[in-house]
Write a protein that binds this DNA or RNA. Structure first.
Length: 111
DNA sequence: GATATGACGTCAT
DNA sequence: CATGACGCCATAT
């Protein structure tokens, strides 16, 4: 089976869209949860290519915002508006990092 | 097909 | 914590 990049982006974006409001995920987490460990860079590409996805909820490792200055400012503002708390220049991942088990597929644990 | 680039991640210094 | 280096993978030229 081919697994073309088109499928890859679709899966990546699907996972991105699963990140709940008020929470965030890292590029690596998205790639891993989508089934493409190591494709963290492609997550960024997927966000470029797609529109409508909650790009603001995707941050770098340790909750660091990687976007360029102005866009980074916008991302931070948007996250704060969603209720995400910051710790210096990073998101308070300790409280706002989405769980991989929550991103993998809906369903999941049922209690 | 090769080289350079990028909203990455981890490790070493 | 900042910088440099390497690994990873798709895109642009």
């Amino acid at each position: 089976m081919a697994r073309n990049s088109g499928d890859m982006f679709a899966h990546l974006i699907a996972v991105v869209r699963r990140v709940p409001r008020g929470k965030v995920a890292t590029y690596g987490d998205i790639a891993y949860a989508a089934g493409y460990p190591g494709a963290a860079r492609q997550v960024a590409w997927a966000l470029h290519q797609s529109s409508g996805a909650p790009w603001q909820r995707i941050v770098g490792a340790e909750g660091k915002i990687l976007l360029a200055a102005e866009h980074g400012q916008e991302q931070r503002l948007r996250l704060q508006q969603e209720g995400v708390a910051f710790r210096g220049l990073r998101v308070d991942m300790k409280s706002h990092r989405a769980k991989l088990s929550d991103l993998r597929r809906s369903k999941g644990s049922h209690a």
